[in-house]
Simulated assay, not measured.
Amino acid sequence: MNTLNEKTAIITGGNSGIGYATAKVFKDNGANVIITGRNDAAVRQAANELGVNGYVSDQGEMESIGKLAASVKADFGSVDIIFLNAGVANFAPFEQSSEEHYDTIMNINVKGVFFTLQALLPLLNDGGSVIFNTSVNASVGMPNAGVYSASKAAIIGLSRVLATELSNRRIRVNCISPGPVETPVYQKLGLNNEEIAGFSKVLSEKILLKRFGQAEEVAQLAAFLASDNSTFITGAEMVIDGGLVVNPVVH
């Protein structure tokens, strides 16, 4: 069913993981899809595989954000859906968290997201949908995630303000907060396959459904929030975590 037919969607960080899966689901539902990413080769490969439009853009650089908005305006004129998915996930104990650790996460996950949306907002049609990819880490109190969880909590707070500010344009603003999802993020953290398997086994026991989520499951939720099937939902945080939040373990 083409629930996104004739809609144009931009997905930041769409060359892998949840962003890639969402691009595929959006396209399968009839959307004209734009993905972004920092790595030129990765963006081109993903765009070719998916049959979508790809732009190289670094969310951590203001100049790059401005160029992205200008390119999308020149090539498409307007968009109907903005999925702010790009971000970084780095972890460290509070007492060992450096200024560099803090600045890297906040620059990309908060400042970059804030100004990417600010730059793209004039292109968003009235009645459109803004979706932030946040995290259950904003509320579960996971150790070593102080800066990361703070960055995601900041975006959840921002989303509620924007839901109010943009309501006069009938623009819906919502968050998706995934729990553990099988994506390349764990390799990016420097964990080997054995470490990932061990971590997954321990954490899966704390999830009511006893498994990690799949990127495609998050993508289906994003497609719902992007579609006209969710026109009475705004200012919401949609948790998709297999029951982790109701059975949290912080040690």
Rank of each mutant, 00 (worst) to 15 (best):
F94M: 12
N192G: 09
I155M: 02
A197Y: 13
N192A: 09
N168G: 08
I10M: 07
L123M: 11
G198I: 09
R170C: 12
E95H: 14
V245L: 13
N2P: 12
A226G: 14
M1A: 14
V52G: 05
N247H: 15
A145K: 00
V185F: 10
A31Q: 05
Q45T: 15
T134V: 11
N125G: 11
T22A: 11
A42D: 07
L117E: 09
A163C: 12
Y148L: 04
G213R: 12
A215N: 09
T3W: 12
Q96N: 14
V140R: 03
V25M: 05
V43K: 03
I207S: 06
T12G: 06
V33D: 03
N174I: 12
S129E: 02
S135F: 02
I196W: 10
S98G: 12
L162D: 09
E6M: 13
I81E: 02
A41G: 07
G87K: 01
N174D: 04
A74D: 15
E182P: 01
L120G: 02
K67V: 10
D241N: 08
A47Q: 01
V88F: 00
S200D: 07
V130C: 07
F94I: 15
N53P: 00
I65A: 03
Y148D: 00
V88T: 13
I82R: 05
E165A: 12
L191V: 09
A47I: 02
A222Y: 03
V130N: 01
K188R: 15
S135M: 06
E100G: 02
P93R: 04
Q45P: 00
T8Y: 09
